[in-house]
Simulated assay, not measured.
Amino acid sequence: MSDPRADGLVETATRLFAQLGYDGTSVQMIAEAAGVSPAVLREAAGTKAELYLAVMRHADDLEQRAVRAAITSFTPEIQGVIALAEAFLDFHASHPDVLALWMQRWMGDAADVPGLEELYTRPLSALVTDRVRQVVPDDVDADHLTWTVVWCVFGFLSGGITYTGDATAPVVRPVRGQGVGAPRPGDLARFRQHLRTLLFHMLTPC
């Protein structure tokens, strides 16, 4: 997108696609939220599908920068894998809309805009798993270990958790509203420690 108005439209569309899904968001809704007419939106950003592709491309750019920075400093040891996992956790904890966009796709959203997993998810997953494979014991599947981190992080950030033994706070502590958001610092620290412990035991040979 070369139109200078496009950046603002991508930002607005990101928020709406994350909250409502691609299928649940109309061009009219995006235009109204951005304060422009549908005609101006189409002129600046193209069709709804083209705007969605720009949104997902921007989301991937952000994630690539965060994860690739951790890959650059990776060391082939347990702590190196933990650092990769924490970079992934920190990125999605601070970018809830990116997480929500992918969660929407996991639920079948934007089925008429296929191929984004092959374009964005597979290359980064393969890059991370190549590093992880240098460290895993023989009885651990590197692909499944990588995705165990993804599943855990997405589940924690999108669904919250039920803690026991805390009578002074709500038992169920989901993230912001319905969808995803930032967990409380104490909950994030507790999950971070769990992730470290999980990976340490998974990567320590029996």
Rank of each mutant, 00 (worst) to 15 (best):
P4Q: 05
R5M: 08
A6L: 05
A13Y: 04
T14G: 07
A18S: 10
Q19A: 11
Q19C: 01
D23S: 13
D23Q: 09
G24T: 03
T25A: 03
V27R: 07
V27S: 12
V27D: 06
A31Y: 02
E32I: 07
E32V: 11
A33G: 03
G35F: 05
G35A: 06
P38C: 11
P38Y: 10
P38E: 10
V40G: 04
R42H: 12
A44H: 01
A45G: 02
G46H: 02
T47D: 06
E50C: 03
L51P: 09
L51H: 10
A54Q: 15
V55E: 02
A59D: 14
R65K: 14
A66P: 14
R68H: 15
A70Y: 05
A70N: 03
P76D: 07
E77H: 13
E77G: 13
I78V: 15
Q79K: 11
Q79T: 14
G80Y: 01
V81E: 05
I82G: 04
I82Y: 05
A87H: 11
F88T: 12
F88N: 12
F88E: 12
F91C: 15
F91W: 13
A93S: 14
A93M: 12
S94M: 10
S94A: 15
D97N: 09
W102V: 08
Q104R: 12
M107G: 04
G108I: 00
D109F: 01
A111T: 04
D112Q: 10
L116W: 06
L116G: 10
E117F: 08
E118F: 06
L119P: 06
T121N: 15
R122W: 14
P123R: 09
L124V: 13
S125W: 09
A126D: 15
T129I: 13
T129F: 10
D130P: 02
R131P: 07
V132Q: 04
R133D: 15
R133V: 14
R133N: 15
R133H: 13
P137N: 07
D138E: 15
D141Q: 10
D141S: 14
D143F: 11
D143W: 14
V150Y: 08
W151M: 11
W151A: 15
W151L: 12
V153E: 05
V153R: 01
V153G: 06
G155C: 07
G160W: 04
G160Y: 02
I161Y: 08
T162R: 03
T164P: 00
D166F: 03
A169P: 00
A169Q: 04
P170L: 00
P174E: 02
P174C: 00
V175Y: 02
R176V: 08
R176G: 04
G177Y: 01
G179V: 04
V180R: 09
G181I: 08
R184E: 12
R184H: 13
P185A: 04
D187E: 08
L188Y: 09
R190N: 05
R190Q: 03
F191K: 00
H194F: 15
L195N: 07
L195I: 05
T197I: 11
L199G: 07
F200Q: 08
H201G: 01
H201L: 07
L203P: 03
T204H: 10
C206A: 06
